[in-house]
Computed example of a mutant assay.
Amino acid sequence: MKEKKKKPKKIKRKLLDKYRLVILNENTFEERLSFKLTRLNVFVLSSLLAIFLITLTYLLIAFTPLREYIPGYSSTALKKQATELSYKTDSLQHVIFMNDRYYESIKKVLKGDVSVEEFNKDSIIEAVKLEASEVDLNPNLQDSLLREKVDKEDKYNLFESATSASNFVLFPPVNGTISSEYNAKEKHYAVDIVVAKDTPVKATADGIVIFAEWTAGTGYVIIIEHSYGLISVYKHNTALTKEQGDLVKAGEVIATAGNAGELSTGPHLHFELWNDGYPINPTNFIDFK
């Protein structure tokens, strides 16, 4: 029992025994530095140093370009180039295949290899063979009833089913000062309205969301298709409240304005209006103040 008690004490004493590390000048034996050390302190310091070196090595490999020089790690730029080349190769192969088919068809025509029998199955050629006298052009009973119904609707329900664009009013998506006007010559087909960050962006009219995604240059972008061929575009948002395919009402919140995207210079809304594929000046129809 005594020997078992002595062993832990002996180990503890060895760990806590103090030593002095002295650095001397070899010529004059002058003491330059001295440190009081124990085996426990040396073990703890060595462990901490090892953990620090391992952590530093991991950070250098994970978050710096130095990992490209380590065998087994590939370059990010090379991966991007390889992906782009793969897409280009696939596109070129498709173009070459289409060109080959086109050239083969031209060769057949020039050599006279095209046979008339190849076109015998065409429904158009078969329809040409029908004589006009063989076709009964007299309307049947169902056709006559349909014609009469359509005539009545065209005669009496014209103004009931027609709608007027004069009642189509556009709602201002935000209120604020315009920092950049619409300028078609400079290809700035929008107005930039300065707003506070996280200002709610509202739909300018009833419609359906046809695009709602993040873009690197203009942040979150949402595009709404309205009646009469009108499309509204909202850019540089920090968040969206609607998704593609959602139906929205005029004045309904669709996004949150901010300073998102590489092309943004401050919190604002980039607002565009397009009609039948042509840009129009939003200030002609909307008062943003």
Rank of each mutant, 00 (worst) to 15 (best):
F119W: 00
E134L: 03
K111Y: 07
D113R: 05
N120F: 10
V128Y: 15
K129E: 08
S115H: 10
K121H: 14
E131V: 01
E117L: 08
A127T: 04
V109H: 09
E126V: 01
E126G: 00
E118F: 08
V116A: 15
A132T: 14
V109W: 07
E134Q: 14
L130W: 10
A127S: 14
V128A: 13
N120H: 11
E131H: 08
A127M: 12
K107Y: 13
E131T: 04
V128K: 15
V128H: 10
S133E: 12
K108T: 04
S115I: 09
L130H: 11
F119Q: 00
S123L: 09
K121V: 04
A127V: 02
S123Q: 11
K111S: 11
K121R: 09
E134F: 03
A132E: 11
K121Y: 05
V114Q: 03
S123K: 09
S115T: 08
A127P: 03
S123R: 11
K108I: 07
I125G: 08
V116T: 14
S133N: 05
E131R: 11
D113E: 09
D113F: 04
F119L: 05
V128L: 15
V116Q: 10
F119N: 01
K108A: 12
I106N: 10
I124T: 11
V114A: 02
E131M: 04
K111A: 12
G112K: 02
L130C: 01
I106G: 07
E117V: 09
N120P: 01
K121L: 02
I106P: 05
V128T: 13
S133V: 09
K107N: 09
S123T: 13
E134H: 07
S133R: 13
I125Q: 01
K107T: 13
I125Y: 14
E131N: 15
I125R: 06
S115M: 10
E126T: 06
K129H: 00
F119D: 00
K108Y: 07
V135N: 06
I106R: 13
E134D: 15
V135Y: 08
N120I: 08
N120C: 01
K111D: 11
E131Y: 00
V114D: 08
N120A: 05
I125K: 13
K108Q: 12
V135G: 03
K108M: 09
